[in-house]
Design a protein around this nucleic acid. Structure first.
Length: 627
DNA sequence: TGCTAACGCGCC
DNA sequence: AAAGGGCGCGTTAGCA
């Protein structure tokens, strides 16, 4: 790492199109945005600049096989892919200075002062150099994309040079395991960049079917509750976009007035908001519904309202802004402290570029709105019981490890403990379809809820509330406590893990995952104690999930390049795959994932089997698991 | 009008 | 004293 090469591109709208198109690579395909220049430079200051588009491909070809650093390189790569240079991009080993730096410095300090820009990196490592201040100053100049060529060409060169310099500084401080693991993250850059450009197709015909049904039901509820502001008749003439829901239910203040003043319902002191106002969230309302069935109607109204604004109207806004049926949620590869991806869509701001994929409802009618593009099918690889397996790994709990080692059904195992049956009897009953076991709120469901809720330090009241609000199971305190007890009696290693995770993080100064991903922890006292302890407990688990995601994306991209990465849902990786791809090819991929060589990539071999499921279907609502 | 805080809620 | 963790988006209210 003496004199690394870095690349930076500057982009702009084509003359006459809006400024923000400079940040929307898919506009290239519409002829509405362009790359102005590409710079490649070394830390030593040598730099070249290419402004002639005819030379872009040749430039990339000349970089084949080389390691090229970037700053938030998914942006640059996306533009190159939009230009049709995906093949050339695949021949380059892409690295990212921002991700590299985050692998080095990820900590609670960064949370309080979020700062991962290139200028921040230069300040962090080269504060005392005489070229530091002028660079920061230049970055702050407000020059519009596409105007002042001289400025942008200088900036492209300097950005590339500075990227190289920061990378050198980060590299000096890094240990080998983190270098290797950070490279695994970065090996997903082409896949992620491509997914941004290709986008996600929405089935708008189905929105047209769902939306009117939603607004009609909302309108009817408003009528019944006497909160209708516009009249039922008017609704029929205004259509989905014209109809305005009542504010009474969507305003916490107005709803609070209705419930606690007009209706004089009792205020639950335990469900006040942080500022002391009576709570009007789902948990509070679910309990009020016991006394007044009208509250059930309000709950239903609010569910419909969320569906309408977030999952029906937002896509419509996006179509209006984008001009076609493809939305472009933008992935950030390391913007959480655990290493999970996040997506942003800015649908509530000015430019509606995407939809909230990460929050997409599980109901089939909504999942059916997300469709693969023409000629492709939807394939998902999901890490089976990921968090539980990683807890078994991290805690070393013998019983939990045995469940996975012996290939038992984890939720049934806990369900058996909850029910008092032996595992064998439980599985026999399950096979026979015993409704107390497999029924709606049966013992397996209870076991599943218990397993998913008790890994961390949840309290019994919250556990009970989650059961009611999220799973529709109404149980008393003692019942909820008995589930929690069953979990900890079954897996006695979990609580000690909480303690040792905190102690280890405190001793080392950071929490760590199997792949060496770190989260620096320093605020151990006072008000911060609880949350810092929680991070120490949670990070090795959720961060390892992110490690798995990174490695899976790398290996699928390398070994199954015909699968087009589509989007990530943390423990589920979604791909667009050509229609004529045989199931055997998908199973091959799953087998590959089941046999990932963690020792080779992470330097650590997990002892709990980390297995994957594969499903395929014509869209998200029709995925069928492959055997 | 534009901004932020508070609240609520969807997913894993 | 008690407290599951991680995110992003949409709405209302209130302020300048």
């Amino acid at each position: 790492m003496l004199n690394p090469l870095s690349l930076d591109i500057e982009t702009a709208p084509v003359k006459g199109f809006p400024q923000e198109y400079a940040l929307q690579p898919w506009r290239v395909l519409e002829g509405k945005a362009q790359i102005d220049c590409i710079s490649v430079a070394k830390a030593s200051g040598e730099a070249i600049l290419v402004t002639n588009p005819k030379q872009f491909r040749a430039l990339l070809k000349s970089l084949a096989g080389k390691t090229i650093w970037t700053w938030k390189g998914t942006f640059d790569i996306a533009w190159l892919i939009a230009y049709g240079y995906e093949k050339e991009c695949r021949d380059i080993i892409w690295r990212d200075g921002m991700i590299f730096w985050k692998w080095l410095d990820n900590s609670q300090l960064c949370e309080r002062r979020p700062a991962w820009s290139l200028a921040d990196g230069v300040k962090r490592f080269y504060k005392d150099e005489k070229w530091c201040a002028p660079f920061i100053k230049m970055k702050k100049e407000e020059v519009h994309a596409g105007e002042n060529d001289q400025y942008w060409e200088t900036r492209a060169k300097l950005d590339a040079i500075m990227t190289s310099r920061v990378v050198v500084a980060v590299h000096e401080k890094m240990d080998q395991q983190r270098i290797d693991s950070s490279y695994i993250t970065m090996n997903g850059m082409v896949a992620v960049a491509g997914s941004w450009v290709r986008g996600v197709t929405i089935n708008y015909d189905k929105i047209d079917v769902i939306a009117p049904a939603v607004t009609v039901e909302m309108s009817e509820i408003e009528c019944r509750l006497g909160c209708h502001e516009h009249g039922q008749e008017a609704h029929h003439h205004m259509g989905v976009n014209g109809w305005i829901p009542s504010k009474v239910f969507s305003s916490p203040k107005q709803l609070g007035n209705l419930l606690y003043v007009t209706w004089a319902m009792p205020i639950n002191e335990k469900r006040r908001t942080p500022t002391g106002k009576p709570g009007t969230d789902k948990a509070a309302l679910t309990y009020l519904a016991d006394e007044n069935p009208l509250v059930t109607e309000i709950l239903r109204w609010r569910q419909l309202n969320t569906q309408l604004s977030k999952y029906l109207r937002s896509p419509l806004k996006a179509r209006e802004y984008l001009g076609n049926d493809i939305v472009h949620p933008s992935a950030s590869m390391f913007s959480t402290y655990t290493g999970r991806y996040t997506y942003s869509s800015k649908t509530s701001k000015k430019f509606c570029t995407g939809v909230a994929l990460h929050q997409w409802p599980r109901q089939k009618e909504f999942r059916a709105l997300i469709v693969p593009r023409e000629g492709y099918k939807h394939v998902e690889f999901d890490a089976a019981g990921q968090e539980s397996r990683l807890m078994a790994e991290a805690s070393g709990d013998l019983a939990m490890r045995a469940v996975f080692a012996e290939g038992k059904d984890f939720h049934s195992f806990t369900g058996a403990r909850v029910s008092g049956l032996t595992y064998e009897a439980f599985m026999k009953g399950k096979a026979e379809g015993n409704s107390a076991i497999v029924g709606n709120h049966g013992f397996r469901y209870q076991g599943k809820f218990t397993n998913l809720s008790c890994n961390y330090r949840i309290g019994v009241p919250t556990l009970r509330q989650q059961a009611r609000v999220q799973y529709g199971m109404d149980v008393d305190f003692m019942k909820a406590k008995s589930w929690q007890d069953a979990f900890h009696n079954s897996f006695p290693g979990v609580k000690p893990y909480w303690k040792t995770a905190v102690n280890i993080a405190k001793t080392q100064g950071y929490a760590k995952t199997m792949a060496g991903r770190r989260m620096g922890l320093m605020f151990w006292k006072g008000d911060d104690k609880w949350s810092t302890d929680s991070t120490a407990i949670n990070f090795p688990i959720q961060g390892a999930g992110a490690d798995m995601k990174d490695l899976a994306i790398q290996e699928i991209d390398k070994l199954f390049p015909e699968f087009e990465f589509w989007f990530d849902l943390h423990d589920g990786l979604h791909y667009e795959v050509l229609l004529d791809t045989p199931d055997s090819r998908l199973i091959e991929c799953r087998t590959m994932l089941d046999n990932l060589d963690y020792l080779k990539w992470w330097g650590v071999q997990p002892t709990v089997p980390l297995t994957w499921d594969a499903s395929v279907g014509e869209n998200w609502s029709k995925l069928k698991e492959l055997n």
